[in-house]
Design a protein around this nucleic acid. Sequence first.
RNA 1: GCCCACGUAGCUCAGUGGUAGAGCACGUCCUUGGUAAGGACGGGGUCACCAGUUCAAGUCUGGUCGUGGGCUCCA
Length: 647
Amino acid sequence: MSSTISVTLPDGSRREYPQGTTVLEVAESIGKRLARDTVAGVVGDCLVDLRTPLVADAPLRIVTARDPEAGEVIRHSAEHVMADAVQRLWPGTLIDAGRQDHSEKYQYDFRFPRPFKPEDFEKIEEEMARIIKEDLEFERDEVDREQVRQLMIDRGEELKVERLEAIPEGEAITLYRHGSFVDLCRGPHVQSTRQIGAVRLLEASGAYFKGDESNEMLQRIYGTAFASKKEMAEYFARLEELRKRDHRRLGRELDLFSFHPEAPASPFFHPRGTIVYNGLLDLMREKYLEYGYHEIITPQVFDVELWKRSGHYENYRDDMFFADAFDDVQDRNNSIKPMNCPAHCLLFGGRSHSYRDLPIRIADFGRLHRYERSGVVTGLTRVRTFSQDDGHIFCTPDQIGSEIEKLFDFIFEIYELFGFDDIKVFLSTRPEKAMGDPKVWEHAEKVLADCLEERDGVDFTINAGDGAFYGPKIDFDVHDALGRAWQLATIQLDFQMPDRFDLKYIDSDGAEQQPVMIHRAILGSVERFFGVMLEHFGGDLPPWLAPEQLRVLPITDAVMEYAEQVTAAARARGVRAELDRRSEKLGYKIREGEAMKVPYLLVIGGREAENGTVSLRLRHRRDEGVQSLDSVLDRVVEKIENRSLEL
RNA sequence: GCCCACGUAGCUCAGUGGUAGAGCACGUCCUUGGUAAGGACGGGGUCACCAGUUCAAGUCUGGUCGUGGGCUCCA
């Protein structure tokens, strides 16, 4: 190994340094100003601490406070400063660990005798300001495990000692200090606390130690930090914009749905929301014809024996509602379905099948009820009653591959209609609470993995232990306005249910065989899809889904009769059209039409009435000018029929 | 289920122990106005619910329900 290394900078220039030179030293050799602003480095694709010695030839980019990567480093350092502030204010408070999440927030957990209150936040923020002003340098130490253990024992940091155990043997352990604060940490960190330009604490909550419900609950504080006050102000402005897209807010403003305490976590869809909801179902029904599905309708309430047989009683009982007859309360015999699959098995098993019949694809929009624990429900994305575009495919083992291929086509065809592009695919494998032979599981997981591998343009991540209790699955996640991921589509392979329900088909050789069952949903929960989609569009639904597609705005009462004709003509062509009869000024009517996000506004005054024309205004755009009624309606109908995303 | 915060008119919110308020929305009337808010008047509240403290509670205390943000869970 040579004793000098060659560093390539972003402008393409190369510089030679002695091996072991740090990122900061490289910055210093380039310029004083750069060195002062350096907060980290990027070696290759990897964000590294500015104190990291460079050991091999590599491309290097110096990260200053202005670069996008700086935020992560600054927040990470603010995290330590916050922990330091808490320990300064309340000596003896034990620290657990900090973490950053996806959305410019950091958190730190403490063992603290009581929850943190908003008043505490002020004190902590003041203390943090003091630490930042002290301009304390961050120091990095690479140390051996025993030293760290002894240090943490000496400092009384029991939680840290326990955390240390979890670090795999052989992994390098680093400590970061600033002032008298020291934490076990991978880094990277800024040079000194002065580089943290602006901090704000956001909220407090409880959090289980190591994320395990059986452990003690620690007190967590969330905060955020930026290089400057200006960046922080921009962050809060951005958050406010996102709140405007929140589907719960849009649902109320656009009169789509509401919730009532009498039925917690159970949405009421208003007439407008119901149009949208049914629009989604209509889409699926139309595609079912193409993809060979048969829709069925099944009961809501079942004898509990069904769930004992399917395995739900054992694995899923806590999440189920029971609906017993008045004189039967003790026995909990009647249960409301949380899933459709057992009913579909009963249907399949109700007659004999030939291999020639397979695959059989059945679809069911049946209403499901699941008792979600009180703390987990939110808006439309996690509810207690919902429908899925649920479907089950019964097929032979060698049909699995082609069925899953078809499902990928189906899913991507549907998602394209909504312009969903940020989709993450996961393969979830055998969970702890699983039914059936591990070997069967292994096989099923392999089948799914193979299908994913073969599919071009699909990247997937493995979610170990995250499968359903009856089989492995492929999930498709989409993000909401606040950046939270929600599972929409799912494909689940199931060898257990056919066995439990003793399902059979007669093969070509006359022998009885067990079919494979594929559980699948494309929208997933229609409610959740509704919510995520609403945020995705920011309420601006494409014409085919807009509850009110067109609104006629007469300027004066004198043209009311013609306005009625226009409205009737639109309706005659199948357009959901309304007429604003109120004696308000045009500006006022436009404002309301825009606020309700109606895609097409048709303004009608004396000139239009005289010539049999309309003046068109498209949603969030200016006046498009006077056109003939027919050409406007042609356009509207065309956009609706093609399920266009454009107006 | 656990931790924290919140709950006042349909909506957004003000009101910190002493006679419930504003804007928007809603109703009536006037206005017939050409591309994002015309005017006047009016109706509307068991201050989430139940207890308690107090001469007096929207306001203080406890509980319940609901909502929000997290944790755990999420077939």
